[in-house]
Amino acid sequence: MNLTLHVWRQKGPNDSGAFETIQASGISEHMSFLEMLDFVNEKLESDGKQPIVFEHDCREGICGCCGFMINGQPHGGRPRTTVCQLHMREFSDGEELTLEPWRAAAFPVVKDLMVDRNAFDRIIEAGGYVSVRTGSPQDANALPIEKDHASRAFDAATCIGCGACVAACPNAAGMLFTGAKVTHLGLLPQGEPERYTRVVAMTEQHDAEGFGHCTNHGECSAYCPKGISLDVIARMNADLLKAQFKNRD
């Protein structure tokens, strides 16, 4: 199949960038979207042109590295699918595709379709951990955890930090990501001791990074490749409210 790609090309963080139209011919429907870009890049390189830069690592939908907008939809819009798991059979011959990087002040473009998502790492550093004393390990099942809590914590923990939630949000909010971490750790007994200091620290870092606010549109959850529920944001809100009464400093 043959495609027309309108790709965002930007030489570096300080370049203004522009769209470039690239013809992609001889594409197999069995290729993943990233393999298609590899194929296009080989052609570009053999022509002496700069390849399209995009981030990728595991290519099996679990690392959170890849991701960009395809025709205005993060990861291409297929439910619960990262762009590395998206296949060209989803598209038709002759189709025009617009490829754009995530657009957010907190995610500056590194080059072309690749953005710097270190803002997420700094939110994690602010409180997305549990403090554990080292020593002899506890018996694995000694700590009782309610099944419902374990399931919800697990669901929240499936977040891969790809940034699609920020990209999809009309306000470029990082609330689904932050909410997923707050929910994942706060629901478990290991995370309970730091629950209320964590939510304050992580939401303050979220704001400091320049993300926007939640208006409960639901786009983040709808485009999340892991289907993280909007409920994690409500739980984070509730925890931050409770923290105003629980914290004593």
Binding site: F19, M69, N71, G72, Q73, G77, H217, E219, A222
Partner: peptide
């Protein structure tokens, strides 16, 4: 964005 599609909002 040049293109942005709503899914559920």
């Amino acid at each position: 964005y040049k293109q942005w599609k709503s899914k559920v909002s």
